[in-house]
Write a protein that binds this DNA or RNA. Structure first.
Lengths: 252, 252
DNA sequence: CCACTTATGGTCATCCCGACCTTAACTGGA
DNA sequence: TCCAGTTAAGGTCGGGATGACCATAAGTGG
């Protein structure tokens, strides 16, 4: 480590050329954030994808994301990209780091390490503003993971990890409430679990668990008429973030 | 992004100077891996620390780690650093990514994003080989988090996150077995939980849970005499990695 | 007025869990 | 040799959580 290393790099139009590769030999890399943004629409779990306008993977779908800037934390970078892609400020939204993905070769331009984030929200807008997100659209998660559509880079893997993380989070935390616009009914909250876990839950037992768990939901008063049937009571999210006891997905 | 950006950087002796900061404006960063390596010795949870031989934080204790090389995955980089620092090949060892830490200012030399890893193992050697690890030593975790010893960079936070991750992992996975050299007794496995959770568990109830959980441990035959008392039966780790039902830390 | 739908609440057997007791098996000292 | 001490192993028992299921409430539209 005592020798002098000189590196000269040239960037043009976002394309990082081979000279970047030499820089990587001393530990340099591009660092980006990518976002797996989930919401529930029409009874399905949707993820926000953009259509890439440039190489590599031009025309492919990909998770939204971008480079981390100099003065910002990784969380701030994720929040900024979220705002640019969806126009959401992130106050009524759950955001957490998923992990780092940095296999060499995941980006043909050279070494790029991405920090993946998981974002969950209710009622995220259909038409997303911002310059980068001109071709952003919501896609059902089921269609991606089981269909022929392939995502750019290693975004399939990131999406798969994000989905598994969400499923686990529903068991041990109260995060499911962020999928529901307030106030919400217990049926709406139950639908969140059913959609994300892909199986039906007993309405009665679900109600018992949710109302008994301290700080999960609290009655907000009032009722809401459904299309049919008895009106449902309304609830707000409670103060707890951890769910005790947990609501485990059982085999049955 | 259509303009041409030229960056010239100079590195010497591992010190990244201010010219790196300009490179960061286009998304470049140093990427490192840091390892929180835990083992149990003398009834205490220990973490491997090194003494830094150079600025910044010269003389401070820090988690072992280093730069990610060009051709390796993040996991491979972590495994390589692990081998260099401990001489352990990692076959009888649990290694998983903890997360990325990249606050600007966490390293006074400039923007450095580190991918933190969690490593758990049994019987890790006291004297660690390798050039970088001349001053490596095991330190009880309790002394660090509650004592006056401050770690370099943001390694306090990484260590805290790693500790919380381990505590959670014991609840929902069978990873506790990697702390025990095989074959082990159920008392030895119970001590793992007691040391990491910082509370005592009922031996009888612990035995019931562990032996009933599918694939957690399996009898290996034979017994081992203790210093006093009835000899204990020996077990090996089972085939499951998920623990169902989980072994929750309760309030009582 | 009735069929249908959804919400809400209750029952009941089962399983899990924490607290506690009992017995087994071995060590070491009187 | 006998006994106290120690650890392992297994059982009991009440409370709580859970899943399966049933019953009633309270709306809708015919």
């Amino acid at each position: 480590m005592d020798r002098m290393i000189k590196v000269k790099m040239t960037f043009k139009g976002g394309v990082v050329d081979e000279r970047l590769a030499r820089a990587v030999d001393v530990g340099l890399s591009l660092v980006t954030v990518d976002l797996a943004i989930f919401t529930i629409r029409n009874g399905a779990l949707m993820v926000l994808l953009i259509e890439r306008g440039e190489e590599p993977f031009q025309g492919c779908s990909a998770l939204p994301g971008g480079r981390v800037r100099r003065q910002e934390t990784l969380d701030q970078g994720a929040r900024r990209e979220l705002l640019e892609e969806t126009g959401i400020d992130g106050s009524r939204l759950h955001l957490e780091q998923l992990g780092a993905f940095g296999d060499p070769g995941r980006d043909p331009r050279g070494r790029v390490v991405t920090i993946a984030y998981l974002a969950l929200g209710a009622d995220l807008p259909e038409a997303v503003g911002g310059s980068d997100a001109a071709h952003a659209h919501w896609v059902p998660v089921g269609e991606i993971l089981e269909g022929p559509l392939l995502l750019a880079f290693d975004h399939d893997r990131i999406l798969g990890d994000a989905l598994e993380r969400v499923r686990e989070k529903l068991e041990y935390t109260t995060v499911a409430t962020v999928f529901c616009p307030e106030p919400f009914t217990l049926s709406e909250l139950r639908e969140v679990y059913e959609v994300i876990w892909g199986r039906e839950l007993d309405p009665s037992n679900f109600r018992r668990k949710v109302t008994k768990a301290e700080g999960f939901v609290e009655p907000s008063g009032g009722q809401r008429a459904q299309r049919a049937g008895r009106p449902a009571a309304l609830y707000r999210k409670g103060g707890s973030s951890l769910l005790t006891p947990p609501l485990l997905r059982s085999a049955s």
